[in-house]
Simulated assay, not measured.
Amino acid sequence: MLPWIELDRASVPGDTAELRLKQRGSEFSIMLGANELMNSRLSGSEEALATLAAERLGPQPAPVVLIGGLGMGFTLRAALRVLPAEAKVIVAELVPAVVAWARGPMAAVFQGCLDDPRVSVHVGDVGALIRSSKSAFDAILLDVDNGPDGLTRSSNDGLYDHAGLRGAQVALRPKGVLGVWSSGPDDRFTRRLKECGFAAEALSVRASTKRSGARHVIWMAVRP
């Protein structure tokens, strides 16, 4: 079996955490300490984050979608496949190196999606972007941690607490969709979404594009 090769390291702004990009053959992994945050072989649930949101939005001529977390581009690519030509997709990525990896060693994984004219990249905190926006987005898709528990960065908790969810409501347009990815279930988060006025459901989806294997959770929450 081919060994893993570490290609690069990157610090996380405002934190002591450090991301590591690793490669084994054509497979890539992004690690934080001993935790694997993402792997290029597992794209199913990240793609579902986009496709499930698009289903709930329904046909719209020019939707505006905010994606929090670039990752390996799976949510972005899925969104571009299902959104119309006049859509606008803003990707907020906190770590500049992740954008550089997308255009460098992982270019084959991204398949040129960052060059799509519908896409713009905001290098910065998605939470700050949400808080500074009002009725700006038809959908907000968050995949910035292992879920609402803020495993990798405690500051991510601010996205998922009551104040953060109410901020997302303000940033969404009427009937806008908040989508949240998680590695596992969290009943308390479902309750928080409903307490903040969202029509919310937690969906179990496959981590990979195959019909077997681990499952992740996607929340779909619609603003009234």
Rank of each mutant, 00 (worst) to 15 (best):
E27C: 01
D145W: 03
I90D: 10
P117Q: 11
F137I: 07
V144D: 07
F74A: 14
G167V: 04
A168D: 05
R211V: 00
R191K: 15
R188L: 15
E36Q: 08
V177R: 03
V91W: 10
V64W: 02
G158A: 14
S212D: 04
W4N: 01
V170G: 00
V64F: 06
S154N: 00
A17D: 02
E46C: 01
L49C: 03
L57A: 01
I67R: 06
S43A: 14
E27Y: 01
G197W: 07
M1E: 12
K22A: 09
E36A: 06
T209K: 07
H216N: 15
A128R: 14
F110W: 08
F198V: 02
D15K: 09
A171Y: 02
T209I: 05
A207R: 06
P59W: 05
D187V: 13
R211A: 04
I130K: 02
G197P: 07
K22H: 06
V205R: 08
R131Y: 00
A136D: 00
V126M: 13
R191V: 15
E47W: 00
L37H: 00
G104R: 10
A102T: 09
L159C: 08
D187T: 15
R192D: 14
D186T: 12
L32N: 09
K175E: 13
G147T: 09
N146Y: 12
D186M: 13
L66Y: 04
G68W: 03
G184Q: 14
S132H: 08
P148S: 12
E86K: 13
C113A: 15
D8P: 06
T152V: 13
D145L: 02
G104S: 11
R118L: 07
V177H: 03
P13G: 15
G167C: 02
L80R: 04
A128L: 13
D149L: 13
R118E: 09
R131H: 05
S182H: 08
R81L: 01
L49E: 04
G158Q: 10
L2S: 15
L165G: 05
V144S: 07
G150W: 05
T75N: 10
V91L: 03
S183N: 14
A87T: 01
G179Y: 04
A199Y: 02
L193C: 12
L114Q: 04
G124D: 11
R173P: 03
G176Q: 04
E55R: 14
P84Q: 02
R41N: 13
A92C: 11
S212F: 13
S133N: 07
